[in-house]
Design a protein around this nucleic acid. Sequence first.
RNA 1: GCCUCAAUAGCUCAGUUGGUUAGAGCGGCGGACUGUUAAUCCGUAGGUCCAAGGUUCAAGUCCUUGUUGAGGCGCCA
Length: 477
Amino acid sequence: MSKRIEIAELLAQPPIGAEVLVKGWVRAFRANRFIALNDGSGFDNLQIVVDFEQMPEATLKQIGFHACLAVRGTLVESQGKGQSVEVMAREVEILGATNLEAYPLQPKKQTMEFLREHAHFRMRTNTFSTVFRLRHAVSYAIHQYFHERGYYYLHSPIITGSDAEGAGEMFHVTTFPPNAAPLTEAGEVDWKQDFFGKATNLTVSGQLQGEIAALAPGKVYTFGPTFRAENSNTSRHLAEFWMIEPEVAFCDIHDNMDLAEDFCKYLIRFVLEHYPKDIAFLDQRIKDSEKQMKAEERRPMGLLETLRFVVENDFERITYTEAVNLLRSSKPYKKGRFAYPVEWGKDLQAEHERWLVEKKFKRPVIVRDYPASFKAFYMRQNEDGKTVAAMDVLFPGIGEVIGGSQREERHERLLQRVKEVGIPEEELWWYLELRKFGGAPHSGFGLGFERMVQFITGMNNIRDVIPFPRTPGSAEF
RNA sequence: GCCUCAAUAGCUCAGUUGGUUAGAGCGGCGGACUGUUAAUCCGUAGGUCCAAGGUUCAAGUCCUUGUUGAGGCGCCA
């Protein structure tokens, strides 16, 4: 009886009557007698019952909120409601006491903003331990989904030499001292003398390298960190986030949409099947927080209901042109309620996407065939000469979760677009060569990992679904 | 980058048209009670009212600038 048993294992098959050793942190200490202990192994706490009359006074005093304990005792059926078993403690050892006068966390509801400023403690709360358990679950499900379907996990580089990816502002990577970079005769920074012999950045996307692999292993996906130096201040953007980017040969835009929809549903179904307690907890948490809100401010559906709905119903699929026509005949358009114009050739704004998803179709929507003018150079030109085979998956509440396209596999067409956009050809020499030597039609997309976790957990702010958020002006922890 | 709002006890907040000594709940601490589930009851300590400057007889309250945070927009995933 000297080996510790994890609480999740103990609760799964309770060894009634046995002597057990458990270790964990105090989530609550009630009536000087009942400890709710959690060791991180699962959602449920284990109730420890101490006989305070037998317990040394000094030990009893130290059983405070979030103190770390080792408990030896007998597992018995619980006399009280709310839990089936409990441990009658024979011996409690304080592994790590907490000075409650100085400890910032309290056993009560605290704001997300406050907890964000104490990110080294926030995983100890029910909400964050649940969110991070689900974050793990979704990661695992992503690898499982692709592995089961014969995809290979491609490790695309974090440091890239190309700044032609076009996905946004980049963070520079250099070993030059900030104020002492060597200069060329023309007075510009001489990147040839830098570590890599050229200017380098943190990646904004693994897509271009993904395309290399799509033309050999054939079906690949990346899943790694991505960096954007955009000054984006919203609840849906991070400067450092994780992205999943499948890239598939012999796959057109329709196959790509099928993959995106099936993939999203798989991830949600996985969580619903394997983590029902966590989802139920978050569902209840949202309902509680909305109790004092006006009816129109509440979510139209609860979290659990929303997730089930997405899994059970087809995503709506429309073209950009159809979307524009629908928007122009919508009530808010006719009443002049949109702040931005709806015109063929202009990008859809968040308010337009929201109307399509939340008002018109009330489900995820995939919009495809956007005008080439505001889409990336690598997207495949459609036969109409105006649009490209791009697609965005829009989710209620958070908007764009996926952006993808069929890639332009025709060398001449791609080269023409590269020139139009003004990217130096030499930067993309290898990318262009893929089209000259054994090219193939192929497609792919990028899924924002944190946005998917945000959707699945119902968390309002993306900073609360990543352990250590990096946003403009903020890189603590 | 733009717009709006906010900042008062450890936390969440109240603080009237500018007016005497700054308020509550929770948490902490002390005590009581003991099968609790946000335990309960009694007592108690705890404040540079974000910062700097200004207006005024008088500023938590009004003005300016800054800082930090939140929400919205843009960029995107």
